[in-house]
Write a protein that binds this DNA or RNA. Structure first.
Lengths: 350, 350
DNA sequence: TTGAAAGCGGTACCAT
DNA sequence: ATGGTACCGCTTTCAA
């Protein structure tokens, strides 16, 4: 099954390869009859144009890449598929932030005619892997923190990069979400609507986004004249750390009214931990999250949280990237996208 | 920002482009010092190899494509991202079958160093779109029913294709799942463990997989000497059709003991419909699904269902495809992957 | 409207 | 161990 090329099509249609190319890319520039002949030949032969050749000639691939963490690569998956004996014991249960964003990216790529590339290369190193992806696409979307400074610099020198969240950079565009206001609104809700007074805060300050959440929290409590508790450290994605955080809180002389977690994932883990300890949520203690992942909505009690416009984040990223690729160096920094408060029942009945 | 090429690197390193190429692809074939020079030059320049050029020269792209339905393209998404005012009212709530499979595909691609391509081209027509994808990859994975016969034929003429489910083809390899046994076990469970006698069956017979489920159902009931009910038609993905199906069942002279749905999605919709009608599940009527999607496990009552090895399906697909790409025309038809019964509480307490 | 031909950025064979 | 050099398949001036 030798590959069918423009040459084959051209020969069968009795025209030059240039004409075949034209027929596909600018059908209006070709005589109707010629067009018909070419098309007939093409599909008689089952012609499938090579994206590599096209990309090389055009100087662009027509694809966009997305670079996220390697959370997919848990040790369990480091073996051949056929070794998988157990039926999906689901370590990672729900569509998390990254998945929802990716969904938005997919949708918008599709809408704009871009193909979407999802990594590749088994290289364990970061840089070679990023470069591999970068070599395949016209623009790259990266989650905050997924790119080292070195990688970002090198990639940016070749193609536009859009980062999701994190700090604003000068070499990459950024899709910002107003984490601070989101958390502010949530905390205010807890204070004003539920009258909670004593708080615990579970989370981290590792990235700009988490810092912003924390700021919103502090601001809201400050506004209510309430004492701001320290951060009890926990990493999203590491439920064990949340369990430790909860244990730490339970060891306090007095149980807080509410435990504010900086991600839904740790909030859900916290609820489990509290329940295990014999406490009721929200009766004994309220719990809140941040993100708005599906599991929170399906949980009992329904998790009160801050809804991030995840799909929109992905779509806007593609929009910006497409602009940059086309040389439209779109306006200044886009306004941050807005979060919305999602009131469930985990914050207290009232 | 002109693109940095092998020529630039070669010049800076004081070697030929052939050597640069070697340095990257077979580092061991190059003198240590030369290698060092080349690498230094490469990263000083921020060299990012072009996948297009490489793909063209090598005759393979190093990418695998996945072709699924266009479920992403709901009308809502046919507008620019910035028009999105409402915060994700989540039309499609949970990771469905296709998402879980895609996850498996991603994992295995990653493991094997393949990049994953997700469509592209805004073409509304099926064929041009498939061809676009096919032109970018070394092999294509397609969900059952996603490819028309014509498309499959044309693509297969150029690259290997693996279909997920459906019929066995001679031009494409297929990853089979033993739907029949899965449903058989489920139905037998309902009969033997719960003593259910009167059944309703909600679903369709559109594809081979659905037919297999139905066969399993019929076989189990037959074995139990139980009357096999007709199929009450409902399409997965169209909850309204499930609601109509439930209405139809409720209109029967006598309520069945159990409603067997051929997908989780319709089972969940059915439960909602029944509850709306004032019935309790499973006390008044048992309900079961098929697939093992997350939402079923999070639902109340927990949905009894047949767990498909979804992630494994994706991984096996890549495994087969990789073999075909490398010319290893792996053995005969792989055995179907096995489903497992997942007993929740929607099938009755006992 | 169509054709000839020069790239696009690598790869890999053949020499040296 | 390196360099020279034909391609790989398509796009895109420039002429005819």
């Amino acid at each position: 099954m030798r590959k069918v090329t423009v040459y084959d099509v051209a020969e069968l249609a009795g025209v030059s390869i240039a004409t075949v190319s034209f027929a596909f890319t600018r059908p209006d520039k070709v005589k109707a009859e010629t067009l018909r002949n070419v098309m007939a030949a093409a599909d008689q032969l089952g012609y499938v144009p090579s994206a590599s050749a096209r990309g090389l000639a055009r100087g662009r691939t027509g694809a966009i890449g997305i670079y996220s963490y390697d959370y997919l690569l848990d040790p369990d998956h480091d073996k051949p598929a056929t070794d998988t004996r157990t039926p999906a014991p689901d370590g990672r249960l729900f569509p998390l932030y990254a998945d929802e964003v990716q969904r938005g990216v997919q949708i918008e790529c599709r809408r704009r005619g871009y193909a979407l590339m999802l990594g590749g290369n088994r290289a364990s190193d970061h840089l070679p892997h990023v470069i591999e992806v970068a070599g395949r696409v016209d623009g790259l979307i990266a989650f905050a923190g997924a790119l080292t400074d070195g990688a970002r610099r090198q990639v940016t020198a070749r193609i536009p990069v859009v980062e999701l969240g994190g700090l604003e950079r000068d070499d990459a565009r950024t899709v910002l979400v107003d984490n601070e206001s989101g958390m502010f609104d949530l905390a205010r809700h807890l204070v004003e609507q539920h009258g909670h007074q004593r708080f615990a805060y579970v989370g981290e300050l590792g990235t700009e986004e988490f810092k912003a959440r924390r700021r919103g929290f502090e601001r809201a409590l400050g506004a209510g004249g309430i004492t701001v508790p320290d951060v009890v450290p926990a990493h999203a994605g590491d439920d064990a750390s949340t369990l430790r955080a909860v244990a730490e809180i339970l060891a306090l002389p007095q149980l807080p009214d509410a435990i504010v977690c900086d991600t839904d994932q740790s909030a859900l883990a916290a609820i489990v931990a509290l329940r295990t300890a014999g406490l009721r949520v929200p009766d004994d203690v309220a719990v809140t999250g941040f993100d708005g992942i599906l599991a929170g909505r399906l949980a009992t009690p329904v998790l009160t949280t801050v809804l991030q416009p995840m799909e929109q984040v992905g779509r806007v990223a593609v929009e910006i990237l497409a602009g940059a690729i086309d040389g439209r160096d779109d306006a200044g920094p886009a306004l941050p996208l807005t979060c919305s408060l999602f009131v469930g029942s985990s914050c207290g009945t009232h």
